[in-house]
Structure formats: structure tokens, C-alpha cells
């Protein structure tokens, strides 16, 4: 555990991080608002309460690993990493700008605390499988976490990786699906239906856990169940809302890859602060 925050403190933390995400996206003038807001609660719990990591020693071999397979929601990861102390908060306002340590999609050689680069969907779970196999080879205690999108479940490689993790019984691996039910073209069920999703993961020999992806104790409990389960990898299917916390962004697919302008930012700040 990185910080021993109680549920109320965690909730306050995610509210603060949501405002930072929106401010940095507004300053950048582009980027992915919807998915950053749907995944921020999961990432906050993961980095504060679940993962074994050390911002003062970002590369120490015994740390747990995190793969952001849905790389486009990196604003959410960047605010969490800055909050943990991996780099100074002032960098947040350089997102997507020339020379920034915060690239439009995660690049491990520029951003302290990133375990891997990502951005081409469908590849992260395979990388996580490799990490989990490597940890097992060395008899290490590291756990490996991989956050995927629900639209990303349409990528064939996800299921190649799912098959491999099941085959190798990688119980040191935990996948998370940020199931916000939207992708760029519309609802996932209309663009290309992925259901029954839990049955698919079960069929690929995974332990499936469901949680409310915006409820701190539900998320924390899901990660605890995953860590306790032996003999199979676990996947947490987190029920989330795209754009969560900002009424005009919630459940709107057109907020997938758009940043708020100054006016929209002000409205959003009011909503978050009044909440």
C-alpha cells in the first residue's frame, strides 16, 4: 500500500484529480476526456491502496507493474503519477506540447513511473502476460495490472493474450476492463457487441470479478479478491460511466477524444466543486 487513505479521503482525492485532468486537457486543447474520467477512480485506488511501488525509486525491480493498455486515457494516469510524486505537478500543464515529458500517449522513456509505452490498442495485455511470466521465472512477488477499455475488447490480440494467461495460470496477473459502454462511433453494443463479456473471460480460464468502478470500497474489494485468488488470472470488469463527474460529458460518445474549452471547463469545475 502506498497511502493509507480512508474511503472519504480517497473520494476527495479523485475529485481533486478529476479537476486536474480537465484543466490539463483544456490547456492541451485536445485529448481524451471521457475515458480519463471513467478510469480515474480505478487508477486512484490502484496506486494508493493496491500496488507496491516507490516514486523515489521508480525502477526498483521488486515493484508491481502497471500496463495502461488503453493508452489514450493517460491524462488520468499522469495526474495519479504526479500525485504520488513521480514528477512535479507543473508538468501536467505541458501535456501534448512539444518537449513535454507527458506525450499524447504514454511513452516510458519520458515519463517517470511509466512501466511501458502504449497507445496501439490490444497490445497491453500481452505485455502484461510477458511481465507476469518474467516475474514467475524469477520467483518474484510482483503483481502485474493491466487496464483495458471495453471497446478494446474487440481487438483479437486481447483474446490471444487472455488464452495465454489462462494457459499459464498467471495468478500474479490482474486485468481490469473499464466498462463505460461507449466508444468513438457510439455504444459498444452497436459498434461491435462484446457481450457476454464475463462469460468470455470465464471461458478463457480467468477468474471474473465485477465491481462498481466509481465506488472506492467496491474497487478495493475487487482488487483484494483478485490478489487472493490462486491458480488463474483474474479480471475485474468495472462498471463505469464515460465522462463520470461532469454532467454534459457523461455517457456521451462525442466526449471520447475531445478536450473541454475554457467555458466548458468552468462549468465542469463548478459541478465538481459543488458536488
Amino acid at each position: 500500500m502506498f497511502r493509507n487513505l480512508n474511503e472519504g479521503q480517497l473520494r476527495a482525492k479523485t475529485k481533486e484529480l478529476r479537476t486536474k485532468i480537465l484543466k490539463m486537457l483544456c490547456e492541451a486543447g485536445s485529448g481524451h476526456s471521457g475515458g480519463s474520467l471513467s478510469s480515474i477512480d480505478i487508477l486512484t485506488v490502484l496506486y494508493n491502496k493496491v500496488m507496491n511501488h516507490d516514486p523515489k525509486n521508480p525502477k526498483y525491480p521488486g515493484r508491481d507493474r502497471f500496463v495502461l493498455s488503453k493508452g489514450h486515457v493517460c491524462p488520468a494516469l499522469y495526474v495519479v503519477l504526479a500525485d504520488c510524486g513521480y514528477f512535479d505537478e507543473s508538468h501536467l500543464m505541458t501535456l501534448r506540447k512539444y518537449g513535454s515529458i507527458l506525450q499524447g500517449h504514454p511513452y516510458m522513456h519520458k515519463t517517470p513511473g511509466l512501466d511501458v509505452s502504449s497507445g496501439s490498442l490490444g497490445q497491453g495485455l500481452s505485455v502484461a502476460v510477458g511481465m507476469a511470466l518474467g516475474a514467475r521465472m524469477d520467483k518474484g512477488n510482483q503483481r502485474v495490472y493491466c487496464l483495458m477499455g471495453d471497446g478494446e475488447q474487440q481487438e483479437g490480440q486481447i483474446w490471444e493474450a487472455a488464452m495465454a494467461a489462462g494457459h499459464y495460470k498467471l495468478d500474479n496477473l490482474c486485468g481490469i476492463v473499464d466498462q463505460n459502454r461507449l466508444q468513438i462511433d457510439g455504444f459498444v453494443k452497436d459498434v461491435m457487441n462484446i457481450e457476454p463479456l464475463a462469460d468470455k473471460w470465464t471461458a478463457f480460464n480467468w477468474n471474473v470479478i465485477r465491481c462498481d468502478g466509481h465506488d472506492m470500497s467496491s474497487i478495493e474489494n475487487a482488487f483484494a479478491q483478485a490478489a487472493a485468488f490462486k491458480g488463474k488470472p483474474s479480471v475485474i470488469i468495472a462498471d463505469t460511466v464515460k465522462g463520470k463527474g461532469v454532467s454534459f460529458m457523461e455517457n456521451k460518445c462525442n466526449w471520447h477524444g475531445v478536450a473541454p474549452n475554457k467555458e466548458q471547463l468552468e462549468t465542469a469545475m463548478c459541478e465538481l466543486e459543488c458536488d
Binding site: G122, M163, A164
Partner: peptide, 25 residues
């Protein structure tokens, strides 16, 4: 013990290798 079969899955094979490389292999 240093060989991993991945089946007929070239894309998975490549990225699993990337993960192993990130663990020092």
C-alpha cells in the same frame, strides 16, 4: 524452463516478448 509456447499467435508472441524484456529477459 526458458522456453514459452504461445500457440499460433504472432502478435501475442511479440508483445509477451516485450513484457519479458521489460523484466530483464
Amino acid at each position: 524452463e526458458r522456453f514459452f509456447s504461445v500457440g499460433i499467435a504472432e502478435q501475442d508472441q511479440m508483445c509477451i516478448a516485450a513484457g519479458l524484456a521489460l523484466m530483464g529477459k
